[in-house]
Write a protein that binds this DNA or RNA. Structure first.
Lengths: 207, 207
DNA sequence: CTTTTTTTGGTGTCATCGCTCCATAAATCC
DNA sequence: GGATTTATGGAGCGATGACACCAAAAAAAG
C-alpha cells in the first residue's frame, strides 16, 4: 500500500510514485467534502487526484479506504482548530466563544468547501453505507464528547453553575455548530454565522 | 398522469389504478426521508410503494418528479406543525418555545424516520443534482423567512427589544433546528432534544 | 547488464441505476 | 357486445458505478 521507506529514509526499490500522495489526498478531501461519499464518483476522484485507476488502487486500496483516510486528514488538518481551541488555557466561556466564532470563520473560508465535512455527512444514505454513517455519527459524538469534557473541567473550576447539565449544554453547542455548517453550505456569509454564534453565546448559563 | 376524475366524482373510463396513490406517496416519503434522494434506488422505491416500474412512471413521471411531490407532501403533512405553530396567536417567545419543543417531539416520533427531511437533505451531493440541492436550500430559506416574519411581527407589538436583529435571530433558530435534526438522526432522544431546545430559549433577547 | 520489485496506462468486467417498450388486462362508453 | 381508454406485468436497454487484470515502464539490487 504505502510506499515502503527504509528507516534511513532511502527509497526502496521499484518504480517510484509519480504523484505526491499528500496532494492527491488533499484533492480527494476537497471533493468528498463538497459532494459527500456517494456523491463523489470514482472517475471524478482519479481526475482531480491526477492519477490512473490502477495507481489509485495501488496507493489507496479502495474508495472507502480512501474516505477513511480523508476523514483522518480532515480531523488533523482542516478540523484541527476545533481541538486546538478546546485545549486553550482560558476561561470556559471564552473557549466556547472562540469555538463558535472560529466555526464562523472556518465554515466560510474561500478556496475550500463551505461548512464542516463531518457535520453534514451521511445523515441520509442508503443501507449499504451504514458502516460509513455510523463512523460519521461516532465522529460527531466524539466531538461533542470533547466539548462535554471541557465543560466539565469548567464546572470543576467554577466557570459554570454547579447544577449545569454538562451533557445537555454540550449537545446544545453541538447542535448549533452542525446547524451553522448547514447554513454555511447553503451560502450563509461569515458575518451571518458570527451573528448566530453571538446569539449562541447568549444561551451561556448564568449563575 | 393523475387519474382524471369527473367533476361529479365519477371515475373516467379505462382500467382503474390498483393502488392508493396517497399511500404509495407516503411510503416513498418515508424512504426518501430516511435515505435521501441519491441514497434511494428506483427498485427500492417501487418495492415499498408496491407498484411496478410502468405503474410508477404512469403515475409519477420520474424519480425526480416523485421527489418534488414528496417534498410537497412532507411540507403539508409531516412538516405542517411548523407553520401551524408560527401561526399561533400567542406571545412571540411562547411561539418559539413551542416551535423548538415541537421539533424535539416531531424529530423523534416513533414509526417515522428521525429528524427533518428537509433540514439534512442534499447538503452534499454530486453536481448533476444541483437543481435538487438548490430546491432544498430554498425550502430551508423559506422556513427561515417564515420565522423571520413572525419575529418581525413580534418586534412590532413589543415582544422583542426594538434593536433586535430579526434576520440574525431567525438564522440562529434556523441553525438550532437544523442541528437538532442532525442530532435526531444520530439517535438523540426526545429528552435530549428538549434540553437543547431549553438552552436555545435561554438565548432569547432580553430587553 | 540482468534480475527483481513496484508503479503505471489502458482495457475489460460485472452489477446497478433510472428508465422504456409492448403486449395484455380491466374498466367505461356507445 | 365492440370500441376506446387507461393501467399493469415483464423483459430489456443504455449509461454509469466501482473495480480488476495485464503487459509495459522505471527504478534499485546483484
Amino acid at each position: 500500500m504505502t510506499p515502503k521507506k527504509d528507516p534511513s529514509g532511502r527509497r526502496g526499490r521499484g518504480r517510484p510514485q509519480s504523484f505526491d500522495r499528500k496532494e492527491a489526498l488533499c484533492a480527494a478531501m476537497r471533493l468528498f467534502w463538497d459532494r459527500g461519499y456517494e456523491g463523489t464518483s470514482f472517475d471524478d476522484l482519479i481526475s482531480v487526484m491526477k492519477i490512473s485507476a490502477s495507481s489509485f488502487y495501488n496507493a489507496f486500496g479502495s474508495k472507502e479506504a480512501l474516505y477513511h483516510e480523508v476523514i483522518e486528514t480532515y480531523m488533523s488538518v482542516a478540523g484541527g482548530w476545533f481541538l486546538d481551541i478546546l485545549g486553550e488555557d482560558a476561561d470556559t466561556r471564552t473557549v466556547f466563544e472562540d469555538l463558535t466564532r472560529a466555526a464562523a470563520v472556518e465554515f466560510t473560508r474561500p478556496n475550500q468547501p463551505a461548512g464542516c465535512m463531518i457535520s453534514v455527512a451521511a445523515t441520509q444514505c442508503s443501507p449499504n453505507q451504514h458502516r460509513l454513517r455510523d463512523l460519521l455519527a461516532s465522529q460527531r459524538t466524539q466531538a461533542e464528547g470533547a466539548m462535554a469534557a471541557r465543560l466539565q473541567q469548567g464546572l470543576e473550576v467554577g466557570d459554570l453553575p454547579i447544577d449545569t447539565d454538562i451533557e445537555a449544554l454540550a449537545a446544545f453547542y453541538g447542535s448549533l455548530l452542525r446547524g451553522m455548517a448547514v447554513q454555511a453550505r447553503d451560502g450563509a456569509s461569515q458575518e451571518r454565522l458570527m451573528e448566530i454564534a453571538r446569539f449562541g453565546m447568549n444561551a451561556w448559563p448564568k449563575a
